[in-house]
Structures are given as C-alpha cells and as structure tokens.
Design a protein around this nucleic acid. Sequence first.
DNA 1: GTCTATACAGGGATAGAC
DNA 2: GTCTATCCCTGTATAGAC
Lengths: 217, 217
Amino acid sequence: MSDREIPSAEVGASTTTMDALELTCRRFPEGQRRIFRAAIDAFAERGFHATSTRDIAARAGLSPAALYVHFPSKEAVLHQISVASLGLTRDVAKAASTGPGSPAERLFATVRDLTTWHAVHSASVRVVLHHLTDLTPEHRGDVTDIQREIYRMMRGLLVEGAEAGFDIADPGATTIAVLSLCVDTARWYTPDYRRAPERIGEDHAALALRMVGAHRG
Amino acid sequence: MSDREIPSAEVGASTTTMDALELTCRRFPEGQRRIFRAAIDAFAERGFHATSTRDIAARAGLSPAALYVHFPSKEAVLHQISVASLGLTRDVAKAASTGPGSPAERLFATVRDLTTWHAVHSASVRVVLHHLTDLTPEHRGDVTDIQREIYRMMRGLLVEGAEAGFDIADPGATTIAVLSLCVDTARWYTPDYRRAPERIGEDHAALALRMVGAHRG
DNA sequence: GTCTATACAGGGATAGAC
DNA sequence: GTCTATCCCTGTATAGAC
C-alpha cells in the first residue's frame, strides 16, 4: 500500500470551516474570493436560506450591493461552491482510483482518501449535500453530473476487482454502499471526534475491503 | 433468520412522501394532524426555511393564523416532526435488535429493517437530518438524545456479537460505519431506484455481517 | 377554533453617485 | 468596482371579530 498523499489538496493542513474554501476559491479572481469564502462560512453555520446576502457581504467586508458585481444571484454563489467542492472531491477519487497498485490497494486508497476528505471538509460538504434542492434544475444537473462521475469511477474499480478476486453480489449495490461509508462521514464527523480524519479513512478503507470480500495487499 | 415484520409501522405499506407523517401524527389530536402532515410535505419539498407558515396553512386548508392555535412557532412544528420521526426509528431498531436469534441474526434484522425504514421514509428523514441546526439548542438536544439511544443499541449488539465470534477492531468505529450504511440510504434513495427498499435492506444487512466478520446463521 | 386584517421586521435585488 | 439609498416583496406572528 502506498503512502501517497491526497493530491494537490493538502488535506488536514488547516483546521477551520474555511478549508474547502481555501481550496475551491483558488481558481477565482481575487475579487470573488472574499465573497466565496464568506458565503461558504455563512452557509455552513446558518444554512443557505437563513443566510442573507447582507450577511455574506458583511463577512467579506463589503457593502450589500457588492455581491452582485461578482455573482448574479445568491443561488449562483451556491452553485459555484457546489461545483467547486464536488470537483475537488472527484479529483481526490480519480487520483486514488487510477494510481498504482492492485485493485485492492487502489480501493483501500480511494476509500481512505475520500473518507478523510469528507471529514476534513465536512462543513462545506454538508452545505453542498443539504442544498441540492435549492439550486435551479440546470445548476442541479451540473452537480449530479459530477456525482455520477464519482459513482462510475468507484463502480469501475469494483468491477475490475471482481475480475481479480473480489466477491461482489451486486456491483451497483456495493458501489453505493461503499460510497455511503465515505460520504456519510460528512454528516456525523465533528472536529472534536476522537479519531483523526486520517484514522477514520483507514478504518473505513479496511471495512470496505471486507465488504467486497478482498484482502489488503 | 425470522421473517418478522417491522413492528407496528407497516413499512412499505404506502408510497407517498406522507408516509412518515401518517405514522408520526397518530399520537396527535385531529386538529394538529392536518398541519403536521402539511408541514412534513412542505419541508420535504422545499426545505424548512423556504417553507412559509402560509404554505403550511394553505396545504392544510387553513388560514395563516390557524397554525398558531396548535403550535407556538414554525420551529416547534419541526421539533415535533423530528422527535416523532426519530422516535419511530428508534422503535424499529429496538424491536429488531432485542428480538430472538443469535447476534448475527439480530444484526442482520436490525440493519435490514433500519435501512428499509430510511428508504421508505427518506423524504421525512431528510427533513430531520438536514434541519437539526435550525432547532433551538434545547430542541436539538431532544433529537440527539434519541440518536445516541440508537447508537448505544447498535454498539451493544456489536459488543455482544464480539463475544460470540464477531471480528471487530474498534467497536465505536464499526458502530458508526454500520449505522452510516443504514442512515445514508435516506440521502440517495428515490422511489424510482431499481432495488425495492426491502431488497436494499437485505443487501445492506449482508454487507454489515461482512464488516463485522460474521456469518449469517 | 377559525377567520380577516395587519403590525413589524428582514431579505433579494437594483439605481445611480463616485 | 465599491458605495449609499431604496424599491418591493415576503415572512412570522398577533389582534380581535365571529
């Protein structure tokens, strides 16, 4: 098993709610970053609807009107956050699942890294997961497209493993179950939980290998 | 393995968003039922904050002011919904985990029934899970108390199983992982999904037995 | 216990100066 | 690109008649 790091994302490098933020907003011009950051924090603390555009602007140190220079609406801010966050999640899954090693090694690495990601970035992930229904149908489609990409990567890995000895009754069912283990971490994890995110990742990875009837190594 | 039904709840008996509703509102006087029902539907479709008290009242066929005859606030309605829904979830877990059979049989039954429950009632469960932070601290405490009860039941079952042959590295970690499998069903399940709720329950139960290193039977 | 009417606050978004 | 000021709508909750 390689001890490869999660690629380009420095998981665990920082400790605040703003982690995902710091990562996701890199692609944005400086002007939008402050608003982007402020919105993630505010949405994570109070939820999308309970957060006013005035809240976001105030956190960013701007006037209420400044938000509309950079984004056409509050929903557009949520959309950008969702696409950026899920895009990085997909990058984590892709790097681990297409890396070196046997299918069992890659499954271990993928579940470990995805779980760790969802713990470290639990606050921003919850924003995305809880507010899918607040996006316009088009914007929601962008998000579900990325979710389907992640599903297909995991399913491909399990099918490949099945040819190499995994014992899987229903590939689709097992794919969903393994991803549940990873994603649900964002629901229950809090920073004061006894196990560190990396440890939870390893525990989940070991359980996933059992679920597919594989052995690590 | 017994083919015992989920007790008193008729899981799978109906198909609409209002399932949980029909169950949870039985204990309420008739006057409150219509509002309770309307609120669950509205919260499930649009979310707590996006739903106005006017929406709820209109769905219930009442004037905007009528809601306040039965509930002191919109938050109180959410609180009642959450406590009722989680209370029934706990009843499902308790019946299955304290039933007859070996620890492996009871674990299978508990994961099966909890998963089926979360699929059938996914809409109302999502309301509870997504809006914990919208409750007052006291009301949120009521909800987390019940969640802890369910956690303790599952943990007790796993510890009992460990004395009877389960292979569990970290009981707390495995408890959370098994419950993730059950609860996360409410996040991804939709009524048009290919597997029926009962089938998902059996699939998850089989995977849970693998996670604890047990054999069914 | 239900209604109509309304008080009162707050939010999304825009206008127009600088 | 940021500000101040503001439009207009919606929301929670209450008052008081029936």
